[in-house]
Simulated assay, not measured.
Amino acid sequence: MTKRKPTVLQSDVQSPSAILSLKVDADILDFCGHFSHFPLLPGVTQIDWALYYAVELLQVPSAFKGMEVIKFQEPILPDAIITLSLNWNEDTQKLVFKYSSVSDEHTTVHSSGKMKLGTPCD
Protein backbone atom coordinates (compact mmCIF):
# COMPACT_ATOMS: atom_id res chain seq x y z
CA MET A 1 0.00 0.00 0.00
CA THR A 2 1.74 3.18 -1.17
CA LYS A 3 -1.11 5.20 -2.62
CA ARG A 4 -1.42 8.62 -0.96
CA LYS A 5 -4.01 10.51 -3.04
CA PRO A 6 -7.64 9.75 -3.91
CA THR A 7 -8.96 9.04 -7.38
CA VAL A 8 -10.15 12.28 -8.98
CA LEU A 9 -13.49 11.51 -10.61
CA GLN A 10 -14.22 15.02 -11.82
CA SER A 11 -12.86 18.54 -11.42
CA ASP A 12 -14.24 21.96 -12.16
CA VAL A 13 -11.66 24.72 -11.87
CA GLN A 14 -12.72 28.34 -12.21
CA SER A 15 -9.93 30.20 -10.49
CA PRO A 16 -9.89 31.25 -7.69
CA SER A 17 -12.16 28.26 -6.91
CA ALA A 18 -12.19 24.55 -7.63
CA ILE A 19 -14.61 21.71 -6.96
CA LEU A 20 -13.37 18.13 -7.12
CA SER A 21 -15.26 14.87 -6.89
CA LEU A 22 -13.00 12.30 -5.22
CA LYS A 23 -13.13 8.59 -4.48
CA VAL A 24 -11.31 7.97 -1.23
CA ASP A 25 -9.94 4.56 -2.20
CA ALA A 26 -9.69 1.97 0.57
CA ASP A 27 -6.05 1.23 -0.37
CA ILE A 28 -4.76 4.69 0.54
CA LEU A 29 -1.78 4.35 2.86
CA ASP A 30 -3.18 6.85 5.37
CA PHE A 31 -5.91 4.37 6.40
CA CYS A 32 -3.29 1.94 7.79
CA GLY A 33 -3.38 2.08 11.55
CA HIS A 34 -5.99 4.84 11.69
CA PHE A 35 -7.82 2.80 13.11
CA SER A 36 -7.61 -0.96 12.54
CA HIS A 37 -11.17 -1.68 13.72
CA PHE A 38 -12.73 1.46 12.17
CA PRO A 39 -10.55 3.00 9.43
CA LEU A 40 -11.11 6.68 8.74
CA LEU A 41 -9.25 9.35 6.84
CA PRO A 42 -6.99 11.32 9.20
CA GLY A 43 -7.57 15.05 9.53
CA VAL A 44 -3.95 15.80 8.64
CA THR A 45 -4.49 13.96 5.34
CA GLN A 46 -7.55 16.08 4.60
CA ILE A 47 -5.52 19.25 5.18
CA ASP A 48 -2.67 17.89 3.03
CA TRP A 49 -5.02 17.09 0.13
CA ALA A 50 -6.67 20.52 0.27
CA LEU A 51 -3.27 22.21 0.08
CA TYR A 52 -2.00 19.82 -2.63
CA TYR A 53 -4.96 20.37 -4.95
CA ALA A 54 -5.01 24.13 -4.32
CA VAL A 55 -1.34 24.38 -5.32
CA GLU A 56 -1.84 22.13 -8.36
CA LEU A 57 -5.10 23.61 -9.64
CA LEU A 58 -5.20 27.19 -8.36
CA GLN A 59 -1.44 27.92 -8.22
CA VAL A 60 -1.66 29.21 -4.64
CA PRO A 61 1.52 29.72 -2.58
CA SER A 62 2.77 26.38 -1.30
CA ALA A 63 4.00 27.23 2.19
CA PHE A 64 1.60 26.38 5.02
CA LYS A 65 1.50 29.25 7.51
CA GLY A 66 -1.16 27.96 9.89
CA MET A 67 -4.81 27.12 10.44
CA GLU A 68 -7.38 29.68 11.49
CA VAL A 69 -10.46 27.51 11.59
CA ILE A 70 -10.80 23.74 11.35
CA LYS A 71 -13.80 21.53 12.02
CA PHE A 72 -13.90 17.76 11.68
CA GLN A 73 -17.59 16.91 11.86
CA GLU A 74 -18.13 13.49 10.25
CA PRO A 75 -15.55 10.79 9.46
CA ILE A 76 -14.53 10.07 5.88
CA LEU A 77 -14.55 6.30 5.40
CA PRO A 78 -12.78 4.05 2.87
CA ASP A 79 -14.28 4.10 -0.64
CA ALA A 80 -16.37 7.21 0.09
CA ILE A 81 -17.24 9.56 -2.75
CA ILE A 82 -16.71 13.10 -1.53
CA THR A 83 -16.61 16.63 -2.88
CA LEU A 84 -13.68 18.91 -2.08
CA SER A 85 -14.46 22.61 -2.50
CA LEU A 86 -11.55 25.06 -2.56
CA ASN A 87 -11.69 28.86 -2.51
CA TRP A 88 -8.58 31.06 -2.61
CA ASN A 89 -8.59 34.66 -1.42
CA GLU A 90 -5.53 36.39 -2.87
CA ASP A 91 -5.95 39.52 -0.71
CA THR A 92 -5.88 37.66 2.61
CA GLN A 93 -3.70 34.76 1.38
CA LYS A 94 -6.24 32.31 2.82
CA LEU A 95 -7.55 29.04 1.43
CA VAL A 96 -11.02 27.91 2.47
CA PHE A 97 -11.80 24.22 1.99
CA LYS A 98 -14.73 21.92 2.62
CA TYR A 99 -15.19 18.16 2.26
CA SER A 100 -18.79 17.06 1.80
CA SER A 101 -20.91 14.23 0.41
CA VAL A 102 -24.50 13.72 -0.66
CA SER A 103 -26.65 10.74 0.29
CA ASP A 104 -30.39 10.52 -0.29
CA GLU A 105 -30.43 14.23 -1.20
CA HIS A 106 -28.92 15.07 2.21
CA THR A 107 -25.58 16.92 2.22
CA THR A 108 -23.10 15.97 4.93
CA VAL A 109 -20.17 18.26 5.70
CA HIS A 110 -17.27 16.08 6.79
CA SER A 111 -14.77 18.82 7.50
CA SER A 112 -13.99 22.41 6.70
CA GLY A 113 -11.29 24.90 7.42
CA LYS A 114 -9.34 27.97 6.55
CA MET A 115 -5.56 27.99 6.22
CA LYS A 116 -3.07 30.78 5.79
CA LEU A 117 -0.57 30.26 2.98
CA GLY A 118 2.48 32.11 1.75
CA THR A 119 5.87 31.70 0.21
CA PRO A 120 8.56 29.77 2.09
CA CYS A 121 10.49 33.00 2.83
CA ASP A 122 7.54 34.92 4.35
Rank of each mutant, 00 (worst) to 15 (best):
L117A: 04
Y99E: 08
G33W: 11
W49Q: 00
P42E: 05
V44C: 10
F38I: 11
P16A: 06
I19F: 06
T108G: 03
M115S: 06
T108E: 05
I70P: 03
Q59V: 03
A26T: 07
H37R: 14
K71V: 04
T2K: 12
A80C: 11
K5A: 07
N87A: 13
D30W: 11
S15H: 08
W49L: 07
V96Y: 08
K98N: 10
R4Y: 11
N87S: 14
Q14D: 11
P78E: 05
S112F: 09
V55N: 00
L51Q: 10
K5L: 13
D104N: 11
E68N: 13
V96T: 11
V24N: 06
V109F: 02
P39D: 08
K71P: 06
T7I: 14
K5R: 13
L57W: 09
L29H: 14
L58T: 05
D104F: 06
E105G: 01
Q93K: 15
T92G: 03
I81S: 10
V55H: 00
T7R: 14
F97M: 02
V96C: 07
N87V: 09
D48Y: 13
K3G: 02
E56K: 01
Q14W: 03
I28N: 02
K71L: 06
H37N: 14
P39G: 08
L58M: 06
K98P: 04
I82H: 04
L20P: 05
S112G: 07
S21Q: 15
Q46R: 04
L9R: 12
T108C: 04
L86N: 05
I81L: 12
L29Y: 15
K71H: 09
P120A: 07
S100I: 02
A26G: 09
S100P: 05
V96N: 10
H106Y: 12
P61N: 06
L51N: 01
Y52A: 03
L86E: 05
S62G: 15
I82Y: 05
K5G: 01
K23Q: 15
D27Q: 04
P39R: 10
M67Q: 12
L57I: 09
E90M: 04
